[in-house]
Design a protein around this nucleic acid. Structure first.
Lengths: 343, 343
DNA sequence: AAAGTAATCCAAAACGTTTTGGGAGTCAAA
DNA sequence: TTTGACTCCCAAAACGTTTTGGATTACTTT
């Protein structure tokens, strides 16, 4: 083990001076500094980060705890978010500590261990659920954290977050369908405990209501946010309500599954039935037919979450710590905007 | 700050006894242990992980350094690998430290900081390149590590790795094309510095040679492993060699791009031209047409890398530390196996 | 020559744990 | 009564840094 002690011995200076030389303090002469640095390089001295973290009481590390079961992690949204987080953290010379735990008591334990154990300077929360106990814990202990996504609409979000106005997004895409003549429009939602589920439901319901169409419970299906959920949803909806001419899906993955189900049932997507999604994953553009969807800037959100968190950690948070980004309607072919137009 | 000192004070026992009580040592009475644990819970004591790591000289953390520029990270292979790594690490109660750095000198610095700085007990290397300096470094310092993928065929792989026999995989899929009548078959390769490029080239070359077909340099294109690389590759190949009836792509992402290019050029994939990939990403099955490809068990590889690494860290490595997994040919529609069969 | 100032350096404390190497008490066997 | 074994506990060292609070020397100014 070549530690600072060995380096001090080798150079003939004290541990203090070595430490201060490497840290560019002004009270060590340029000559000494150069000599120490040179020697450090020669003997391959590498400071022990753990000891340093202990002494400085900071780790230059951001934490991220992800649910293990979540297969949509390796597809789509989450990996793109992580990409943004990783890049921005790297740029700011922070590392990212990932702990994968299955949800439940164990999950909160992981937070306590990592946060209470001083392993990270701040933590990023994703996949918020309704009445999320993790948020309650982090607020209570007063550790820096930021959240990807708000709480559900009936909770007060008194913490820093970045979210997308998904209610407006779903409203826009639903309205687009209505404008092109659709009247019987199904909806595939995320599981009810997901925080943003109600925003998406409201966007859909508002668009219907504004067009004088009644919201019907049986046109709404709860999926699991994966392709399979969309498949099941579309299958179920078309089975019970074959007159539906459009289905709004809460994310692209489910929309892709839904398109497949529709095709399996003999309907041609974009002609017999319109399908729209949410996210604008890479796949959306290359889907067949290309998916009409609501774009949210996932990678960018990841980057901004990191900037926001680091700002908070370093004591200079931006003015706005609750950020709601707009979405953008991306019209492609899966909504077949010609249907119902009398054409 | 509520540390072990406060807990000792509160319970009236020494720091030693408190520490040993929480660690289930047998030399503290059951009664004392129960009392200490109860009090710990009450005052919300959470051991400082950093101090613990310093003292024990181990972090229960695995490291993973990823290149920032790599956009295929958020699509496809890498995120699926990470998913497997995260899950297996979580199961073994290890965390994963991710450092995203742009490649170059900086990248090796990141390794030195994390490995030499004792932040991780072991490290997982991915995206190996030819004559990879990271491998040389890790071998030299003798830190536990495992590699996803071997070195190039002309280097001696004297380290633990898990790879897939991609030469055999590409051979199989190329042979499949030949068996169905194709004679003019293009190849889209990864960039030349990628470690596995030559295996894929060889698999293709061998299949051609065994069928008495000459390997032609101008039928081979180097892509960037992303959709765009496949698109460019197919465009270039069909532009210069319009008589090609099939193109083998080194990964699914490029295959998806290649299919798009073919379609843009007015060819119907699976009828006018065969396209095959490698990986069997989720998207492959849902592509249009569904992609014929060579499956490798990416998630599983991630899991096994972790098991292997932890075995090495804990001093009981398995007998086999160099694992070559078989691939599986998945025939779908993009290879249109009816072409050229005289039908 | 004394006092002040600037430039270099360093011993020791501190960060919060775990582990080492016992010590004290009790009980049973010799 | 001594010895040994067993149970329960603890003081202090150790992990490898950074930081505090000076100390020493050399040079300048009075």
């Amino acid at each position: 083990m070549v530690g600072i002690k060995e380096l001090a011995q080798k150079t003939g200076f004290s541990i203090t001076t070595v430490s201060r030389a490497l840290a560019e303090y002004s009270d060590v002469s340029a000559e000494t500094r150069a000599f120490i640095r040179q020697t450090a390089r020669e003997i391959g001295y590498q400071p022990n980060e753990v000891a340093r973290q202990l002494r400085r009481q900071r780790s230059n590390t951001l934490g991220l705890i992800i649910p293990t079961y979540d297969h949509s992690f390796s597809e789509g949204f989450f990996s793109q978010l992580l990409h943004g987080i990783g890049d921005a953290a790297g740029d700011a010379r922070y590392d990212v500590l990932i702990s994968a735990r299955s949800p439940g008591d164990d999950e909160l334990e992981a937070y306590k261990r990592i946060v209470g154990g001083n392993r990270v300077d701040g933590i990023i929360l994703a996949r918020t659920r309704q009445h999320d106990p993790r948020i309650a814990y982090l607020k209570q202990v007063g550790h820096p954290f930021v959240v990807s996504g708000r709480t559900a609409p009936d909770e007060i979000p008194d913490f820093p977050y970045i979210d997308v106005d998904s209610q407006a997004g779903i409203y826009a895409v639903t309205q687009h369908l209505i404008a092109h003549g659709h009247r019987q429009i199904g909806l595939i939602l995320p599981p009810p405990d997901v925080a943003y589920t109600d925003y998406r439901r409201r966007g859909y319901a508002d668009a219907l209501s504004d067009a004088g169409i009644a919201y019907q419970n049986e046109w709404v299906f709860s999926g699991d946010l994966r392709r399979s959920g969309g498949y099941q949803g579309m299958y179920h909806l078309l089975d019970h309500h074959p007159t539906l001419t459009a289905v709004v899906c809460s994310n692209d993955l489910m929309a892709l599954g839904a398109m497949q189900a529709a095709q399996a049932l003999g309907r041609i997507v974009g002609r017999d039935i319109a399908v729209v999604g949410f996210d604008d994953l890479f796949d959306a553009e290359y889907a067949h037919p290309p998916l009409t969807t609501v774009r949210q800037p996932i990678y960018e959100i990841g980057r901004r979450l990191v900037d926001l968190l680091i700002g908070i950690i370093q004591g200079h948070p931006p003015q706005e710590t609750q950020i709601l980004l707009p979405t953008e309607l991306i019209v492609r072919e899966s909504c077949g905007t010609h249907i119902g137009k009398g054409g």
